[in-house]
Design a protein around this nucleic acid. Structure first.
Lengths: 219, 219
DNA sequence: TACAGTTGAACTGTACTACAGTTTGGTTCA
DNA sequence: TGAACCAAACTGTAGTACAGTTCAACTGTA
């Protein structure tokens, strides 16, 4: 522990900070799906040049939260049934692939902890926290794949998914959610891979159905 | 089939075209790993404004071929041992996950065709084509996962990998490569998933070793 | 009343200029 | 030989300008 520990020069650009900030705002629902990010308006409001905003939004594009349309600029992504379907299919493939592997002790530990956190969150009933813990639990499962690149890819999808859940203000029933996850954890703990895979598939399947229902109601 | 099929207005921006062009040049080796993309120089040479180049490079960043460093701009990615390792680990996970699934007839057909194409290429001995077909074959395997998002993710990794192979000017021994892939195809055709998984793992393992050897020699 | 056509404001895509701060490679000096 | 310094090159950001596109409101017509 050096005396200079934690001391660090600001090693980031304005555009990067703006991108981070914008991502937060979008996740918080300040911009809805399909909304355009108007460069001039944002630039004026934040007191930066338009090209800086433009660059920030390009960086934002890396996270998948917005996509560019020619002559319309950046548009916030929208949870269409196809998007949701594709997202969950990819999740299912990765998580089941992870479930057939034998987790190392610390990985199993991480899964257990993530589950406990989820149970904890369910008790409080705070929807935002439940969603966070829910997603973190699944990320922990994917970690069993031992691939940093897949971890990153999954994390990006998680970001997108969390946004969808935010805008659809998912009505969760805490007990049910905990129960669904508990069977997964039990199967993993028991080392019963086939059952783990089956439970994960089932869980993701019901999740996607629930989400698509929300989508339909929303319309 | 409409009478207007294929008719389309040019729906792209200058920056997008520049990004595509730059990607081609990088893949072709015009810029080596670690090289900086100097905005002013490129802008002057191509007769466009610097901010347009800047935007093009940001778009290019989406493909993973370059990354930004503060105050140094865009830098072409380099095949470090860690990068290569991570890339191949992710490939291994995805391809083996695909191999445990039962391909639909048209997917099996696509794999067969991809393999035949590879054999064909091996006969010509053209290294560039062999690499192309090799990667296309593996992409065909991943398609069995039935996930467009994973297909896209894998394609992005393929792009990166092809670049690494390009700069390391892989010395391939055609017959060996065909043999390695043939055992995979045989296992898939036979429906022997365990063997398919094992062969894929072995193949990827030898590939990564070979590549890391090239890397070491290169130094 | 419904609908095609027109118009204008708002906005994007691109260019150009400018400048402070950082990086880099070379050169001088101890 | 190595540290200190310096100037050139380059990035990050600001600001202005303008052509082309989009979009919604307005107008005229059947």
């Amino acid at each position: 522990m050096s005396a200079l520990d934690g001391l660090e020069v600001r090693r980031t650009t304005t555009a990067q900070q703006l991108a981070d900030g914008l991502a937060d705002r979008i996740m918080a629902g300040a911009f809805g799906p399909g909304d355009r990010l108007r460069e001039s308006a944002i630039a004026a409001e934040l007191g930066v040049a338009r090209n800086t905003i433009r660059e920030a939004v390009r960086i934002l594009e890396l996270t998948g939260l917005v996509r560019y349309e020619v002559n319309r600029g950046a548009v916030v992504i929208a949870p269409t049934p196809e998007n949701v379907e594709a997202l969950y299919t990819a999740r299912e493939r990765l998580e089941t692939a992870a479930a057939v592997r034998t987790p190392r002790p610390e990985q199993l530990q991480a899964i257990n902890t993530a589950f406990d956190d989820l149970v904890e969150a369910a008790k409080t009933g705070d929807p935002k926290q439940i969603v966070d813990r829910d997603l973190a639990f699944h990320q922990a499962i994917v970690t069993t794949l031992d691939s940093s690149r897949l971890d990153d890819f999954y994390a990006a999808m998680t970001k997108e998914l969390r946004f969808y859940l935010t805008v659809l203000s998912k009505d969760d029933t805490p007990d049910e959610i905990v129960a669904e996850h508990r069977v997964i954890v039990d199967a993993i703990r028991a080392g019963d891979r086939d059952r783990a895979v089956a439970e994960i598939s089932a869980h993701i399947d019901t999740s996607v159905q629930r989400l698509k229902q929300l989508l339909a109601d929303d319309r």
